[in-house]
C-alpha cells in the first residue's frame, strides 16, 4: 500500500541555517510516528515543510503518492484538505474573532465541501467527537479553557477528513490532567478515523503512549527510526540513549536511583554543523572516524530499525554509553 506520507531527502535551509538537512521518513496509512529530538533540531521545521507552511528547499514530500514539495500554491490549494497541522498553542492559532462553529467549518467552506446545512451538521458531529457540547458553536476561543481550545483546533484540523495530521507539541501548553484528555482524544480519533499522524513532541512518555514508531532528530538529521517498543527498550544511537536517560520518571523511588548519560560540550550550530557525525562533538563514545565520515541512516538488527551511527553493528548491537549518577556539575 502506498504510505500516507513519504518524505524523501528533504532539505530546508533558512539562509545559512540548515534546519532540515536531508531527512527521509515514511508514515504508513493509519500509523502514528513520533518525532522527538533536541530543541532546535528541526522537528517543527520538518512538520511545516510537510504541510507546506514554509517553502521546501529540495527533496520530496509525497502525500498518498503525490509529491507536493515543490507544487505552486495554486496547484497545492485543492490538495490541502488532505493534510493538516495542529500547533502547541491553540490560542494563537485560532482566529479570536470567529466563533467556534465558524472556525471548525472554515476548511469545509474553503474547499467548498457540502452545503451550509451539511456543514453545520458536520460541525456538531465533530464537536461531539472531540467531546465538546454542541452549544460551544457560538462561543469565541477566549471563552474556552486551553484544553477546550486544543479540542477545537483538532476538530478543525479533522473537519475535511484529512489522511495526514501533523501535531506539533499539541499538549505541551496544557496541564497534566488536560494533557491526558487531549492525548486520549488524539488516540481515539486516530483509531476511529484512521488518519496517519506525525506526532512531534519532547514528551517521551506521550510518544510511548501514542506512537507506533519513533524517529529521533539531531541537528537537522534523523539519527534513529525504530518501533516504539524497540526504541524504548533498547535505544541504539548514543544520542537516543542520552535522550531517554534524561527524561525524568515521575516516581522518586525510581528516578533517584537512575543514572543518566551526561552530554558535555556545546550544542553545535545548524549554521556550521560539525563534519562527520553531527553528534560526535558531544558523543561520549565517539572514535576518530566519527569526526570524518558521515554515518548513513542504515538498517540494523532483525526488526528493521534504522540507525545512523558507525558504532552500531549491522546485527543491531549498540555501543554501551556509560551513565553516571547526576553528580553536581561544576562546568566542563
Amino acid at each position: 500500500m502506498t504510505p500516507t506520507l513519504e518524505i524523501v531527502d528533504l532539505v530546508k535551509h533558512f539562509g545559512p541555517v540548515r534546519a532540515v538537512d536531508g531527512v527521509s521518513l515514511t508514515v504508513g496509512v493509519g500509523e502514528v510516528v513520533g518525532l522527538v529530538g533536541e530543541s532546535g533540531s528541526g522537528k517543527s521545521t520538518l512538520g511545516r515543510c510537510v504541510t507546506r507552511l514554509v517553502p521546501v528547499t529540495s527533496g520530496q514530500v509525497r502525500i498518498r503518492g503525490r509529491d507536493i514539495a515543490l507544487l505552486s500554491r495554486r496547484a497545492l490549494r485543492p490538495l490541502r484538505r488532505d493534510f493538516t497541522i495542529v500547533f502547541q498553542d491553540p490560542s494563537s492559532s485560532l482566529n479570536p474573532r470567529m466563533t467556534v462553529g465558524d472556525i471548525i467549518a472554515e476548511p469545509l467552506r474553503l474547499h467548498r465541501l457540502g452545503s451550509a446545512a451539511t456543514r453545520r451538521a458536520r460541525v456538531i458531529d465533530l464537536l461531539d467527537q472531540v467531546g465538546l457540547p454542541a452549544d460551544v458553536v457560538r462561543r469565541y476561543p477566549h471563552e474556552l479553557s486551553g484544553g477546550q481550545r486544543q479540542r477545537v483546533s483538532l476538530a478543525r484540523a479533522l473537519s475535511a477528513s484529512p489522511s495526514l495530521l501533523v501535531a506539533d507539541e499539541p499538549t505541551s501548553a496544557l496541564d497534566v490532567s488536560v494533557q491526558a484528555s487531549v492525548l486520549n482524544l488524539v488516540g481515539r480519533l486516530q483509531r476511529d478515523l484512521g488518519f496517519a499522524c506525525l506526532f512531534i513532541t519532547h514528551d517521551l512518555a506521550s510518544v510511548e503512549f501514542l506512537a507506533q514508531r519513533v524517529a529521533v532528530m539531531y541537528l537537522g538529521l534523523l539519527v534513529e527510526i525504530a518501533d516504539r517498543a524497540e526504541l524504548f527498550a533498547a535505544p541504539r544511537h548514543p544520542y537516543t540513549q542520552a535522550l531517554l536517560s534524561a527524561a525524568p520518571i515521575p516516581d522518586p523511588a525510581v528516578q533517584r536511583a537512575r543514572r543518566r548519560i551526561v552530554l558535555s560540550g556545546d550544542v553545535p550550530s545548524p549554521v556550521d554543523p560539525p563534519p562527520g557525525c553531527r553528534f560526535h562533538t558531544r558523543c561520549p563514545v565517539a572514535v576518530e572516524r566519527c569526526a570524518v565520515d558521515v554515518p548513513p541512516l542504515r538498517p540494523v538488527g532483525p526488526a528493521g530499525a534504522l540507525v545512523a551511527c558507525h558504532l552500531v553493528d549491522d546485527d543491531g548491537t549498540a555501543p554501551e554509553v556509560s551513565a553516571a549518577m547526576p553528580a553536581p556539575s561544576l562546568g566542563s
Partner: peptide, 24 residues
C-alpha cells in the same frame, strides 16, 4: 491522586488510555 494518575505511564497504557480528571 488524580494528578499522579494522569501522567502517561507505559505500565498502565494497556488498560484503556490515560486517566483524566473530569472538569476544570
Amino acid at each position: 491522586r488524580g494528578l499522579l494518575d494522569a501522567v502517561p505511564n507505559p505500565a498502565r497504557h494497556a488498560d484503556g488510555g490515560l486517566r483524566e480528571i473530569p472538569g476544570r
